Simulated scan of single mutants.
Amino acid sequence: MQVKHLLLIAILALTAACSSKEVLDENLSEAELYQQAQQDLDNGSYTSAVTKLKALESRYPFGRYAEQAQLELIYANYKNAEPEAARSAAERFIRLHPQHPNVDYAYYLKGLASFDQDRGIVARFLPLDMTKRDPGAARDSYNEFAQLTNRYPNSRYAPDAKQRMIYLRNLLAAYEVHVAHYYLTRHAYVAAANRGRYVVENFQETPAVGDGLAVMVEAYQRLTLDDLAATSLETLKLNYPGHPSLENGEFVPREEAADERSWLAKATLGLIEGDAPPPPSQTQASQDVQRQYQEAVDQMPAELKSSEQGEAQQAPKRSWFSYMTFGLFD
């Protein structure tokens, strides 16, 4: 069968799946609706489970299963790869049932939804450096996990939330280093120095501190602020003697000075550079972030691991053709 025929079949199947809408019997009792929703959850039919849980809540808002249905709707949306819907359902449950014995679970799932928001279908098919992405979802996830650990320190979900907070804090610090490096490439040395100092002052005990110090040294050297550069360099040598920017105890700048750029880089105001700088993924902070993310996924409670995540972890290295076709022919 030709490739175009396979593509046509796939498109038609996807269209039919998206256009299909489950019709529920209006005569189903509350218990029957809840039982069917539970069967869908057990079978991994999360879209169908969401439909039944919403119907149960709307038909029987004061029934015996109403609160449980609201709680399980968060889980069903999360497993169905709908992070915004999961966060919205979690916020609603927290607002309506702040004293519920399982409200800590709602906080936890809300944080997980934000945690995985940037790692959806795109991350499955394309290799992404999370330190280059907009950190908005990471900040949200960190704050939501912080609410859980502060309000419910003895929750069974608190240990996992704390581990994810460590990863997220490292991710946010690595993002700041990435921005600082961008300023260096544009020879905005004051801005780069400020970003590096921000990392050192606000993200202590993260791998990015060494990278922040290296940025400060380079920026201060370019600004001919010799005292500040010397102080930063001594701190870097003392605390991070093995940092990649140090070779035999001597500091090696990452970027060329403004007057050392090629004529093409000068003529285009730096929009077209000569040699591309090393990507942020080569920094210590970025490598540590990637490792910690994998550890956080491995430590997630088994009941919350989606089959998609499990397949992704066990999948062999994919070819360029697989990436180009979004895995359609794998």
Rank of each mutant, 00 (worst) to 15 (best):
E308Q: 14
A208P: 05
E26M: 01
A219I: 11
A31D: 15
S306C: 01
D129N: 15
S306K: 03
S281F: 03
A229Y: 01
A49C: 09
V23W: 02
R254P: 00
A188Y: 09
Q290H: 14
G136P: 03
R59V: 12
K162A: 04
A106D: 14
Q117A: 14
N194L: 13
E176R: 06
A66W: 05
R151I: 10
L171D: 11
K52N: 02
T231Q: 13
A123Y: 01
E84V: 10
L238G: 08
Q2H: 04
R169G: 04
A158K: 11
A81L: 11
S245G: 00
Q294N: 05
L225D: 10
P316C: 08
A66K: 03
D129E: 14
A89E: 01
M165F: 08
K132L: 15
Q2A: 13
P244F: 05
V199C: 00
E218P: 13
T185Q: 12
T206A: 11
A31L: 13
A180S: 13
D227R: 14
V200I: 11
R124M: 10
R92Y: 14
R156E: 15
Y78V: 04
V179L: 04
A138K: 03
R164Q: 01
A158N: 13
L56F: 11
I121E: 09
Y108N: 04
A113T: 07
L96T: 13
H243C: 07
F125A: 09
A230P: 09
L28V: 00
K54G: 07
N239P: 06
P159H: 03
N154T: 15
Y107S: 02
T51A: 14
P98R: 01
P301R: 05
D25Q: 03
R151F: 06
S245F: 00
Q294I: 00
N239C: 00
H5F: 08
F321A: 12
R318M: 15
A208L: 11
Q314V: 01
E82N: 15
A69R: 04
L28K: 02
D211K: 05
P253M: 08
F62Q: 08
Q284K: 10
Q284A: 10
S88D: 12
R151A: 10
K21G: 08
A285T: 00
A173Q: 04
P278D: 01
R291L: 01
V252F: 03
Y108V: 04
V50G: 07
L246F: 12
Y60H: 06
L126P: 02
W320L: 15
A312P: 01
M324C: 01
V217K: 12
Q204L: 07
E26Q: 07
R169V: 02
G270Y: 04
Q309I: 02
Q36N: 11
G242C: 06
Y189W: 15
Y240R: 11
E247Q: 15
Y175N: 15
A10H: 15
